[in-house]
Computed example of a mutant assay.
Amino acid sequence: MPPRSRKARAYDPVMTRTALLAQARALCGAVRGLAPEAYAAPTRLGAWTVRELVVHICRQVEILPRALAVDPPAGKPDVTLTRWALSTVRIAGLLDEDTREAMALTLDPSARLERACDALDAALAEGIPERLVLIALGTPGATMSAADFAVTRLVELVVHADDLRDAAGADVPLDRQALAAATRLLADALAEKAPGNAVELRIPPYAAVQCVEGPRHTRGTPPNVVETDPCTWLRLATGRTGWAAALEAAELSASGERADLSPYLPVLV
């Protein structure tokens, strides 16, 4: 029996706005507290230092106000949240190029992030508007609803807050709603990438999805179960940590002969 199609998860725009503004301000505070020498520290993002990471975070905060500042495109959205997640691999090179270009224009990354947060506050002062926005996803004219695009900004800010904590030891609080949204979106992206009902992925307290082709259980505990915490899941889903390393560190548990999700990871690059 083929796997049943999944209903797209909905995110409340009011909660999304609150979480996005909170997570952006949390990053502002953490970056403001960085010592000058911290900007030269390496990160787990290839050749990027903390300075590149912070400038990239600036760009992720700036992009929504800029998208809302232009006239909305017509029609219906053609990019869903899970499609966005699974398509980012196509623009990884463009994001690196964009960040390096922005580096040359950024004398003070902390001040730039403060300005970006102010612009985000202003753009969302009356809430997230019900309209479309153009997004850069390797396809000219790609559109999302503004509410969904705001959720993608939550994912970016939560993932990069964790990057900043890892690289600079920065105290970056993770907004609970932001972490929940990022966890759920990336779990849903895995379920779309590897459809099926043979494995249940549990990420308490935020998400549980079924994925991977194979025998489908009908009652009781499924035969293949993977369980981990939200931060470990984000690192697995984005390639920050590997499956074997997380297992060895007891950061996840996997039971059952099909409970190896490594062939389907990462889901967001």
Results as ranks from 00 to 15, higher is better:
D171T: 10
V172E: 07
V172F: 07
V172T: 10
P173D: 08
D175L: 03
D175C: 15
R176E: 14
R176F: 04
A178L: 04
L179P: 11
L179H: 07
L179N: 08
L179W: 09
A180I: 03
A180L: 05
A180S: 13
A181Q: 15
A181E: 04
T183C: 13
T183M: 14
T183N: 14
R184H: 09
R184S: 07
L185T: 10
L185Q: 10
L185A: 10
L185E: 10
L185W: 08
L186N: 10
L186E: 04
A187W: 02
D188N: 08
A189P: 13
L190C: 03
A191H: 05
A191P: 12
A191V: 05
E192S: 04
E192A: 14
E192G: 02
E192I: 06
K193R: 13
K193M: 14
K193E: 13
K193V: 03
A194Q: 09
P195M: 08
G196C: 14
N197G: 08
A198V: 10
A198I: 05
A198C: 09
V199C: 00
V199A: 00
E200S: 11
L201G: 00
L201W: 00
L201S: 00
L201F: 01
L201K: 00
I203C: 05
I203V: 14
P205Q: 05
P205W: 12
P205I: 04
P205F: 11
Y206G: 07
A207T: 02
A207F: 01
A207N: 03
A208L: 05
A208G: 13
V209Y: 01
Q210M: 05
Q210T: 06
C211K: 08
C211Y: 01
G214P: 00
P215C: 02
P215V: 03
R216F: 05
H217Y: 15
H217I: 02
T218N: 12
R219T: 06
R219F: 11
P222I: 00
P223S: 02
P223Q: 02
N224P: 04
V226R: 00
V226F: 00
V226W: 00
V226P: 01
E227A: 15
E227Q: 07
E227D: 11
T228H: 10
T228P: 14
T228I: 09
D229Q: 09
D229A: 04
D229W: 02
D229F: 02
C231R: 15
W233K: 12
W233Y: 09
W233P: 06
W233E: 06
W233C: 03
W233A: 07
L234F: 07
R235V: 09
L236G: 06
A237G: 12
A237F: 12
T238I: 11
T238G: 04
T238K: 04
G239Y: 12
R240I: 12
T241W: 07
T241Q: 11
G242M: 06
W243C: 03
W243A: 12
W243H: 13
A245I: 10
A245W: 07
A245K: 12
A246Q: 15
A246H: 08
A246D: 06
